[in-house]
Every structure is written in structure tokens, then in C-alpha cells.
Amino acid sequence: MNNRYLQKEILRISGADVSKCMRCGKCSGTCPAYDEMEYHPHQFANMVESGDIEPLLNSQSLYKCLSCFACIDRCPRGVEPAKIVEAVRLLATRKQGANHMTANDVPAIVDEDTPQQLLVSAFRKYTK
């Protein structure tokens, strides 16, 4: 489906220019979360370009991105795929009840060495 409204939202929030993508796949080749993802960084760029947004919005891939920014630095065309993933993820988590993690999950995550940074970052990325 071609969803122009969501497409515009994603381009506005991310500031990324998907039309620059030349389909080389370097972003996905370098992505440390590649094996875990259903849709890969280059697919985020391409599907947003064609307005095929719903599958991305409903995909677990949104929560596999590590914000390592490797795809941003290594894309030869400056497409910045991580910014697109982030924009779609926010569109998903900003919906009421769409949080991907809750405080109830915390006891199972922490051990005596868990840095605060882990929880703070996880909440920032998985909830809104």
C-alpha cells in the first residue's frame, strides 16, 4: 500500500533523503543487527521511498536497531538509514499502549553489575 501521509511524516521527522539511495546494500551489509532483522536498513529506505510503510510499522525490526550509526557513516550516498528506522519506530511507539518494554520487565533484566545506562537507553528506545 502506498501511504503518502506516513511517508511524509517519516521524511519530516527523520530529515533523511531516501531518493538518494542507489540500492548498494552497504548499510545492511555493515549492520550489526542484520541477522535479527526482518527488514534491513536498505529496505527501510526503499520501502519508505515507495510509501510501503505499514509492514515496517508492525515489524520487530524497529526494536533490533542498536543506534550504532554505522549505516549513517558507511552509506556512500548520505541516506542516513538509522534516522529512518528511528522515525518509524517513534511513529509506532508514540501510539498509546504501544510500548515495547515496561517497568515490570526490569527485574528480569538487571543483575548486580547492570549499568544505569542500559536501562535508561532501553527505555528511551523501547518506550514513549
Binding site: R12, G15, E80, E86, L90, Q117, S121, R124
Partner: peptide, 13 residues
């Protein structure tokens, strides 16, 4: 105050 741990690249955050 805590920085939040990860920068969100979203322009509207």
C-alpha cells in the same frame, strides 16, 4: 540531569 543514554535523531523530539 541524565542525558537519556541515546540521542534520538528525530527532529521533532
Amino acid at each position: 540531569q541524565c542525558c537519556g543514554g541515546v540521542f534520538t535523531t528525530a527532529n521533532d523530539e
